[in-house]
Structures are given as C-alpha cells and as structure tokens.
C-alpha cells in the first residue's frame, strides 16, 4: 500500500516537473522556432498580421544567403555573393586564431597565477577579468581611431587582437580555477623527481587541467563567435564575421527578414551543435570549475 502511495506522489511530482519544464522551454525556444519558420516563409507571410502559422514553404531565403540565386533586392551590392559564407569564413579565421593565441598566452598565465606567489597577483588577475565586464563601447571608438591610424582597420589581425579581450579572461580564469584544484603536491612531487617547472606545467598540470581547458575554450569560442560590435565597427564586409553579415540584408529599400533569419539560424547552428555535445564542459566552465563532471 505504501508503495502505491509513493508511486502516486512520484507521478504527481513528475507531472508538475514536466509541466514546468514544458512551459519554460516553450518560452525559451519559441523565438528560435519562429525565426526558423521565417527562413521558409514567403515575404507576405512574414509580415502578415495576425501572424500566421501556415504558409507555402520556400527555399529562396537559403538560396539567396548561400549565393546560389541572385538577391536582386539588395541593389548595387547585389550579385551571386554569399555574405553568409564570407561571414562564416571570417568568423572561423578570427575566432580560431584568437583562441589559439589566448591559449598560448593564457595557459602559462593561468598556471603562474595559480601557483606562484608575487605582489599584485590578485590585481593582475582581476584586471584581466575586468576586460569581460567593461562595456566594449568604452574602448571601441579609440580603438577605431587607433587601428585606422596604424593601418589595421578592416584586417583580420585587428579583430583577432581585439577578441583577446573576450577569450583571454575566459580561458585564464576558468583554467586557473581548475589548476588551483590540483593539489600543489603534484608540482612538488615533480620537482622532487627532478623536473623543471616547464616540464611540470606541460606534462603534469596541463593534462590534469584538460577539463578546464576544454570548458574555457568552449566558452571563449561561444562568446567570440557571438560578438557583433567589434566586427561592425572595426571592419567592413570582406572581413566582418557572420554575425555582422546579417546587416547586408538591411538595405535602404527593404528589410529582408527571411534572409536575416536564415543567417541567424546559420550562425547559431554550429554553437547549438557544440553545446549539445560538450554540455558538461559548458556547465563546469560557466560555474568557473565549481561543479565538475
């Protein structure tokens, strides 16, 4: 009898859990669903009021965005160019290079901030973190002027450089937290065994901190990929990342909602896939290493 009572309780509890989850998820996922349908909607249905759920699907938006069909409405800049693919290429160049540089710089820095004692250590660490919460608009005008002056405006290098503001703090703080969780005795055992600090860092600490490196890299990738403002101000079409390329379809004549939606979905897709497969690193990274596995 007791068992049945428990069972009833469980079903009731589960029911509430699922209802809450369904409400939350529909709230969060509906905008994505709506944008996703926009990709296949004819223009009339997109701007229809009241909004319509039934429509005649079309692939025109995707064809335009991939440059397989001429998007006449863009006017002068029109042609068989895929702004989406140019954007993806630029995003990959900028994001991957900037993360590589951040790893090369950030991992040794994380080790030193985790293990060495020196004056002003916390100040340095905090200053680096503050790059994350300083508003980008604060620095973007001076940077624009600076880069124009030294000839870096509209180059990949400029964006890679500025993206360090995003990826270094991410990688450094998350990996530092992970390294601090590794007992210092591992380093000391290495020293007693006769190894140098560099060997200890490369062979003992890095392999043990790989969860943190994965988490930091993943988060840095997401934040860098999603960045909009740096690319918009510091570069033009040939260099701008995929997030900014959506603006190509905002013309003086029309707002090409369908194509914008297509680029948005295309830009978000890689991140969605990453997030699904690397969830556990994402969670541990977001909690700065406080939750493991």
């Amino acid at each position: 009898m007791d068992k049945r009572k428990n069972l009833g309780k469980n079903i009731f509890g589960k029911l509430i859990t699922y209802i809450t989850l369904i409400i939350t998820f529909s709230f969060l996922l509906f905008p994505i669903y709506w944008i996703f349908t926009m990709v296949f909607k004819p223009t009339n249905d997109i701007i229809a009021y009241p909004p319509t759920f039934s429509f005649q699907p079309t692939l025109k938006g995707i064809l335009y965005v991939l440059g397989l069909e001429e998007a006449t409405a863009i006017g002068t800049t029109a042609g068989f160019r895929s702004y989406f693919l140019i954007g993806v290429r630029n995003s990959l160049i900028v994001v991957v290079s900037s993360i590589l540089i951040s790893l090369i710089v950030g991992l040794p820095a994380a080790y030193i901030l985790a293990r060495y004692k020196f004056k002003g250590k916390e100040d340095i660490a905090f200053t680096i973190l503050s790059f994350r919460f300083a508003p980008p608009l604060l620095v973007i005008i001076p940077l624009y002027l600076l880069f124009s002056r030294i000839g870096l405006y509209n180059t990949h290098i400029a964006l890679i450089w500025v993206y360090q503001l995003i990826s270094i703090p991410m990688i450094l703080w998350i990996v530092r937290g992970y390294i601090e969780d590794i007992p210092i005795e591992i380093d000391q055992a290495g020293m007693v065994d006769g190894y140098s600090r560099i060997y200890i860092f490369l062979r003992l600490i890095l392999p043990l901190a790989k969860g943190g490196i994965a988490a930091g890299t993943l988060l840095a990738f997401i934040y860098s990929w999603n960045n909009f403002i740096f690319g918009m101000v510091l570069a033009s079409t040939s260099v701008q990342p995929v997030t900014v390329q959506a603006m190509r379809y905002l013309t003086t004549d029309t707002l090409m909602y369908r194509e914008i939606a297509a680029i948005c979905i295309g830009a978000a897709l890689p991140l969605l896939i990453l997030a699904v497969f690397l969830q556990r690193y994402l969670i541990s990274g977001l909690s700065m290493g406080a939750i493991r596995r």
Binding site: A189, M191, V192, L208
Partner: peptide, 20 residues
C-alpha cells in the same frame, strides 16, 4: 639549491602520485 638538484626523495602524506 633548488629542489630538483638537491638529491632528496620525498613521499607525500596524500601519496601525490601522478593520476594520469
């Protein structure tokens, strides 16, 4: 003289083996 050059061996209270 730094630890690697001191010619001592030490076992740690928590063993501190290299986990990997």
């Amino acid at each position: 003289i730094v630890t690697p050059k001191r010619d001592v061996a030490l076992t740690f209270e928590e063993y501190s083996l290299y986990p990997h």
